[in-house]
Nucleic acid binder design. Structure first.
Lengths: 122, 122
DNA sequence: CGGCATCCGCCAAGATACTG
DNA sequence: CAGTATCTTGGCGGATGCCG
């Protein structure tokens, strides 16, 4: 057994996870769906600042990653519901942790983010 | 107390965390530093595909968020070491989870990512 | 309502080169 | 070795409109 001097190649797992959760609203979508908001239109309402197109697109991507199931009700008006797959359930802990961490450090973080954007504004 | 009908406003925590871990290499940087790779040049070697400029910039941002401490040795050639702050230690669990999740699901994910990029190539 | 096509602006990140 | 300035680029996401 050699001692790894530098390589580490930590990339693998981290990079793939970021690939899956990378989009702007992906984590919010997963979280919202886990909370029972299943329909695209409701999701858009629940995620202020998001647009239909991007949400739709990211839902599609999450479906391709088998994070989400898509159930189509063939009726008029059409109705669609997304639910977490088993794989999707396994990412939830990560997202909840991210949310908790953000909540928990809200005050200091807000201040830092604010001062950063101000200094950039100059 | 009103029942929230739709809002949820889950944004807060999640959004801030993504703000902090958002850059392309931020999570890798934090992870590598937690593993004892502290110097910029070593970090760049440890993270294949990264460039000096972006790494440097993201280290700076993480420092501004008080995720990292920067220690400068005034000598020639110059030497700099980054270490995790207490706040930085608290994000580590998230990153480790992301890494583990990615590792654990490597096989299926790789296949999906591959097929996705192929279909896009058309 | 849900999905997709199109067009476009912007910004994060690549490439390169220079200072201390 | 570490950091920054400059220029360029690619692709993500915003806006809008149409169709089933």
């Amino acid at each position: 057994m050699y001692e790894k001097k530098i390589p580490l190649l930590l990339e693998c797992g981290l990079t793939m996870t970021k690939e899956v959760l990378g989009g702007k609203w992906k984590t919010s979508l997963i979280y919202a769906i886990s909370e029972g908001i299943l329909r695209p239109s409701d999701l858009q309402r629940a995620i202020p600042g998001s647009t239909k197109r991007v949400l739709s697109q990211q839902l599609k991507e999450l479906e391709e990653f088998h994070i989400l199931n898509k159930k189509i009700y063939h009726q008029l008006p059409p109705k669609v519901e997304y639910t977490l797959t088993e794989l999707g359930e396994t990412v939830l802990p990560i997202i909840k942790m991210m949310n908790q961490w953000g909540e928990h450090n809200r005050i200091p973080l807000e201040t830092m983010i604010k001062s950063r954007s101000e200094s950039r504004a100059v």
